[in-house]
Design a protein around this nucleic acid. Structure first.
Length: 160
DNA sequence: GCCAACGTTGGC
DNA sequence: GCCAACGTTGGC
């Protein structure tokens, strides 16, 4: 079945890994490891190569959508779950049945205008965004094509 | 299956 | 640093 490109939003704390870090990573690509939430993992499993990603800075001042990226590798086991020295080690996960997965994403652009959370809240066309729902803290979440278009326009970014 | 306790997320 | 909201764990 030929499915069209899908859109997502992924959160990262810039002090841990920022859009600049992604832009300067080898191949401008990184593995999105460390996700330890089933809903977020399930969304990553749905991702296809070519899917587009909004890059969001959480725990930042201000928290904001700052750029975009693209999925370049579909879900595969996250090695950090097996590493006892890693902060994201999961002793309950076994190699025969890995519990946590990750995808690879590649940098696309840093928006000329980053979009603080409170700006996004003021845009009526974005009211349905998962990001803006009360109590929402999913670190990987879907974005509708309509919301993607609005965000890209607000950010002065290339829509593709 | 319920739910209290605990841990985490993330805005402020 | 605070704390509301949410997710997970584990006793029963």
């Amino acid at each position: 079945m030929a499915q069209g490109r899908q859109y997502w939003l992924m959160k990262s704390e810039p002090r841990v890994f920022s859009i600049e870090d992604l832009a300067h990573a080898p191949g401008q690509t990184t593995g999105w490891d460390g996700v330890r939430n089933y809903q977020a993992r399930n969304f990553m499993r749905m991702m296809a190569v070519g899917d587009q990603v909004l890059f969001y800075h959480s725990n930042a001042a201000p928290p904001a959508v700052v750029g975009s990226a693209e999925v370049v590798r579909t879900a595969y086991p996250d090695e950090t779950q097996f590493d006892p020295t890693d902060h994201h080690y999961d002793p309950a996960s076994v190699r025969a049945a890995p519990r946590w997965e990750m995808v690879d994403i590649r940098y696309r652009q840093t928006f000329t205008t980053s979009l603080p959370l409170d700006w996004l809240r003021q845009e009526p066309r974005l009211h349905a965004m998962v990001l803006l729902q009360k109590g929402s803290r999913l670190s990987v979440q879907p974005v509708t094509a309509a919301a993607w278009a609005v965000v890209l326009k607000l950010a002065g970014g290339r829509s593709r």
